[in-house]
Nucleic acid binder design. Structure first.
Lengths: 253, 253
DNA sequence: TTGAAACTATGAACGTCATACACAGTACGC
DNA sequence: GCGTACTGTGTATGACGTTCATAGTTTCAA
């Protein structure tokens, strides 16, 4: 109820609280139009294509006009992160484990569809309406399993982190267009071979052995969908272990 | 042995393979000096303080001289990521679970000591000698538990991702100086209160309830060290579950 | 010992970009 | 209708990454 907080103005706008102008010309834009334009550019050309000028020209105004709506380019990026997120799946009637898997996979898919998200290192706790909705649904899905709210939030955090890591892996080494075309590996079918050329077996015994064994050969080593499931089940097994521990009346460490 | 690969030149230099110059003046610098200077600046002033000019002036050359050693600023950032990493702990004689915990915690600590790392969204598979050494040690620690190399690497990947997520959380919402001072929350003892002011209980029922219950009150909700351990044990429980599944002779899904 | 070759650092210049500011135009309230 | 408050524009600025021609320096070969 103490709503008089000093929120960043972009966040206010994200929640639909655009300032009500009584006098003056109608604003030609709103945060949504600007952000959508920016997202379209990022999807098409990558984040490097997103400049204040390019976004402005796409919505048909001068570059400096955008500053009526966002305080800075950082603000715009923040808004983009919230706006790309679609509506979370509905947890109603789903077993928690299924829902968590679905939830995490959907997050990963979003990251894969908009790889530039990975370049916006905005691992900040979310404040936008869309991302918070995801959190809400996860909490709802975990209702009644015996975890407290803090634990549920930690679970959410771990899952989000995993989605991020995996998406980053897939994007850089395996999947589609190389988004980070700079110091990464290109197609990297040969990541293993590259490593084999670099590693001194004496200094890196275990890794050398793994490479020789072919564990990193191309897509098989890193970017398989099976690999995603693997880590996901790892996490979910952990959650399940915790839940049954709680159910048997133990306390936390 | 097929060493004639087209590696990015920075990577070559990371492995100590500076080109041997027969003619001409001795190079006044090497990649290590440049990268160390950049790291010192980043530690002191944040990543925004790191410009080609500032790094160059710190090592006592003109800005453009750096381009003899790094192809671009991106390259420099890549080198920084490898150089900040210290030596991994020794797995010898440690139970795998202890070592994995230690390993993950050490990675998180590095991230907390150098928060600018989080802003370099370089979740790329590592190619530098230092980061690969960490991977090697993790593989060694998991020797003989019954996982194949691919699975071990997936475990490493999940743990690294978790360290990253947690460090990001701690850095932005709780811990030290606000590194992302832009659209984040400042001290955020009041993240919960901020949320309370934003959330419509009808649209966000579970989250509102959690907030009212105080699950997000200040440092308790997010940034406790207990929270880090919580997620970590989650993951390790998952690994343990997998290991015993493998031990009982099952196959993967 | 001398000269050329190979390589290093420099300084100026360029293009891009985010952003500040003063101004002009526009709609609403009285 | 007049003032006011607000919107979009144009210009300008400063920072930054990067390129290029140049001058300087060290080593090799004769």
């Amino acid at each position: 109820m103490a709503q008089e907080r000093a929120l960043p103005p972009v966040v206010e706008r994200l929640w639909g609280r655009e300032p009500v102008s009584r006098r003056g010309p109608r604003p030609r834009l709103d945060l949504g139009m600007i952000t959508s334009a920016a997202i379209e550019i990022a999807d098409a050309e990558g984040l490097t294509g997103v400049s204040m000028a390019s976004v402005a020209s796409r919505v048909g105004v001068a570059a400096t006009a955008l500053y009526r709506y966002v305080g800075s380019k950082e603000d715009l990026l923040t808004a983009m992160v919230d706006f790309v997120v679609s509506a979370p799946p509905d947890p109603a009637g789903r077993p928690w484990r299924d829902y968590l898997a679905l939830w995490t996979r959907a997050q990963r898919d979003t990251l894969l569809e908009h790889p530039w998200l990975l370049q916006i290192a905005r691992l900040t706790p979310p404040l936008g309406p869309r991302r918070l909705l995801w959190l809400d649904r996860l909490l709802a899905a975990l209702d009644g399993v015996g975890l407290d709210d803090g634990e549920k939030i930690n679970v959410a955090s771990a899952l989000t982190g995993y989605a991020l890591t995996d998406a980053a892996l897939v994007t850089t080494v395996g999947g589609g267009e190389p988004q980070f075309d700079d110091a990464g590996i290109e197609g990297a079918d040969d990541y293993g071979e590259v490593l084999a050329g670099l590693l001194d077996p004496e200094a890196y015994p275990a890794l050398s052995a793994a490479v020789r064994g072919g564990a990193l050969r191309g897509a098989e080593g890193w970017v398989d969908d099976g690999d995603f499931r693997f880590g996901l089940e790892l996490l979910l097994d952990g959650v399940e272990a915790l839940i049954s521990r709680r159910a048997s009346g133990e306390d936390a460490g």
